[in-house]
């Protein structure tokens, strides 16, 4: 897989952004909690993501050159935003770790990082939307990226913040549910548009996409099943409706081990999003008369 670096980069950064967004929201509700492990994880993910992005470059040592065209190039802008986000997140993590007393600074920096992060998701999606890859020229990829950031961020936040999440858990689960549903709707629209696109590249992408229907099915099974699991403790009555027979059986065995269920849910959602991202890159076909 040629674009493995980019899968890693976008998934890590988006997950990190998601965590920071929920950290910011949680901070609004509970200024005292430090959400230490969530934020440190976010910083770790952001750094890993940033490093992964270098792996994609043919000449990583010259990466600095990419900062020069922020006025015209989405990609240049993304590097600024990603760097800023990663820098801020790492700073917050550092402060929490080294100097937890600087609470006001921490509390101020988290929402700034979150906002930059959310803007970065837009920039990231714009990068792909700008290209001549028909498979990416669809507004659904914005939804795809935001949904990935929200769902992964939320589920990781639940996992990493444990009891501190408190009342937020239900809200988070709903947020994930909504994000995933929007993601599904976006994908439906995407299939229709790509299928209707007459260009050879689009058709090729569509064929590739269809050839990957197993992977696609797996993506959605994992994501939907994973997010469904999150509803188990809170909305057990509705579980059957939402995730079906199989989930009920799982639920029966995991009822008492709430944290295990959450871990499984997190793993499923993240793996699902990674598979989705893999498909995203795998179906990219440029132009109709490509030289390559």
């Amino acid at each position: 897989m040629k674009e493995i670096a980019l899968v890693l980069f976008t998934i890590c950064i988006q997950a990190s952004i998601g965590i920071m967004v929920f950290a910011a929201v949680a901070k609004l509700l509970n200024k005292e909690s430090s959400f230490k492990s969530a934020i440190i994880t976010a910083a770790g993910l952001a750094i890993v993501g940033l490093l992964a992005s270098f792996m994609h470059l043919g000449r990583p040592l010259s990466a600095i050159n990419a900062l020069s065209q922020f006025g015209s190039s989405w990609l240049s802008l993304e590097i600024w935003f990603t760097s800023a986000f990663t820098g801020l997140t790492a700073l917050v993590a550092l402060l929490i770790y080294v100097k937890p007393s600087t609470k006001s600074a921490i509390n101020a920096l988290i929402p700034i990082a979150a906002v930059i992060g959310l803007a970065n998701v837009f920039v990231m999606a714009s990068i792909y939307n700008f290209t001549s890859v028909p498979a990416w020229q669809h507004s659904s990829i914005f939804m795809e990226f935001y949904a990935a950031a929200i769902s992964m961020g939320a589920v990781l936040f639940i996992v990493l913040s444990g009891k501190k999440v408190g009342n937020m858990r239900r809200t988070l689960a709903f947020t994930i549910g909504v994000a995933v549903i929007l993601q599904v709707v976006a994908m439906e629209l995407y299939y229709i548009q790509l299928g209707a696109n007459e260009s050879l590249a689009a058709q090729t992408s569509f064929t590739l996409l269809n050839n990957m229907s197993t992977a696609m099915a797996l993506k959605w099974l994992l994501i939907l099943f994973g997010s469904g699991l999150l509803f188990l403790p809170t909305m057990k009555a509705k579980t059957n409706v939402l995730v079906g027979q199989a989930a009920t059986e799982v639920a029966a065995t995991t009822e008492e081990t709430l944290s295990t269920t959450t871990y499984i849910a997190a793993a499923l959602i993240i793996i699902g999003q990674i598979i989705g991202r893999y498909i995203f890159y795998a179906i990219s076909i440029t132009g109709t008369i490509g030289l390559s």
Binding site: G58, N65, L75, T131, S132, S284, T286
Partner: peptide, 9 residues
């Protein structure tokens, strides 16, 4: 050039 291949896309 840093080999980001964005132009390729």
């Amino acid at each position: 050039c840093i080999g980001c291949q964005y132009c390729v896309w």
